[in-house]
Design a protein around this nucleic acid. Structure first.
Lengths: 241, 241
DNA sequence: CAGTTATTTCCACTACGATCGAAGTATGCC
DNA sequence: GGCATACTTCGATCGTAGTGGAAATAACTG
């Protein structure tokens, strides 16, 4: 076994300060160094050293804007590897009402790298499939890929997405992403990201200022129901939850 | 974020000696402590300390047989998390002919936790689907699951698998597993494990003594071709490779 | 230009953890 | 019982990596 990088990558993630920063970036945003230092509760010098290592290790990408240096996860594989580790790690005990509320919000709707996850994300993917707009591909060479039907293509184009442009992107067009809390799949890939971006643009979703959770606005609640038949407040049996 | 275990789990994997032992167990086998120490090139005392931490951290399960203590990965989630990290880690440079041969063998056929991966595994999954024996489920609530068709159930029962018993197992019955070298899916879950076990039982596959690679025997080559239409020596365009 | 802010580099200090020798416990074998 | 084997616990050593203070660099601001 010559996977020299394997242990190195894991130990890179294994430092508490670095792990905290990586988790802050799980939603695919880019944050400046100072902000990451503040959130991880370490000094800027220390954060700088850590961020340098994370970039060198291929986990983060760096984008410089003036005197600010924005760091983001280098790609979806990084987010997926982190998710894999999250599944293994027992969620810490809830220590306050504040935390319990936050966890509930995360479970309801959050961003996963750059697409929508949580109950809302899962329901949306379900409804797209249920309406015959999205299908799993059957060709064995396309395993793990999703595809839009002609009807779905039309519907999402009408919703404001530039489907041909998305197909030209180098990313996988549409693929399932396992949700570690709901244990169901939601929509990832270029399509998932674009759809999520459109929901923010319409004001249907709003970012929570300090967590990965996203807020479903009133407009979003009615909009998602009318456009996609999504009712995230009831569980699969129709009961309120 | 209260994922206290997150960084801890990653740093558990991040130690080179522990990483080496974990990689040795990626195929789902159980190995005794001394053997793991030997393979990781560390003293038995050191290995003992590491193994204790891995068990405490929930990554390994321990089974005692007489004076031997066998360690194995605690479950498929662990294998999946490790795969996620493997994808991020660049394969080390090939330093010898020996290594190049081993890498070729790994790419051709290997075990991934307890099911078959590599080109042979991918081709087998493809052929099962192509023959209409295995399908992706369309119901949104069953995302990420595969299912046997009635024809497939009959065929695999005739091949010696006890399908009803597999359905009763607590594991997921059949699911896709992404192959990090082929970038395609192969068959995992209870069905994938049972099918793989049957291939070993028939002598179609043989374990390589010192690596995760498995050897496709002559009997296996003809058997897989006759029973499932698998021809792993040609690439998807039919060329020899 | 000076002054402020974002970030990095340099540099000790410190602490934690990997390592192995030595000794201890448990199992199996004759 | 006696002896070898498999593994663990204890204890001491040693290196390495995280940490923040001080100072340098670089960009924006007026």
């Amino acid at each position: 076994m010559t996977h020299t990088g394997f242990a190195q990558t894991a130990s890179l993630i294994g430092d508490p300060s670095r792990a905290a920063m990586l988790l802050q970036l799980m939603d695919g945003r880019a944050l400046p160094a100072g902000e990451l230092a503040r959130r991880a509760r370490i000094s800027p010098q220390t954060a700088s050293a850590h961020l340098g290592k994370l970039v060198a290790g291929g986990l983060l990408a760096l984008e410089t804007h003036g005197r600010h240096r924005y760091y983001r996860l280098r790609g979806p594989e990084v987010a997926q590897a982190l998710e894999g580790l999250l599944i293994l790690s027992p969620p810490g005990p809830v220590r306050s009402l504040r935390e319990s509320e936050e966890r509930k919000a995360l479970r309801f709707a959050r961003t996963c790298y750059d697409h929508l996850a949580g109950r809302v994300g899962v329901r949306l993917a379900e409804q797209l499939t249920h309406r015959g707009w999205l299908t799993r591909l059957d060709a064995p060479s396309a395993a793990g890929k999703w595809e839009l039907t002609p009807a779905g293509e039309e519907a999402l184009a009408a919703f404001g997405l530039d489907i041909p442009a998305l197909r030209r992107s180098r990313r996988s067009f549409a693929r399932p992403c396992l949700d570690w809390m709901e244990r169901r799949h939601h929509l990832a890939g270029a399509l998932g990201a674009a759809l999520t971006a459109r929901l923010f643009e319409l004001g249907w979703l709003r970012r929570h200022p300090s967590s990965r959770a996203v807020i479903l606005t009133e407009a979003g609640r009615t909009g998602l129901h009318d456009a996609f038949g999504v009712s995230p407040d009831t569980d699969e049996n129709g009961r309120e939850s």
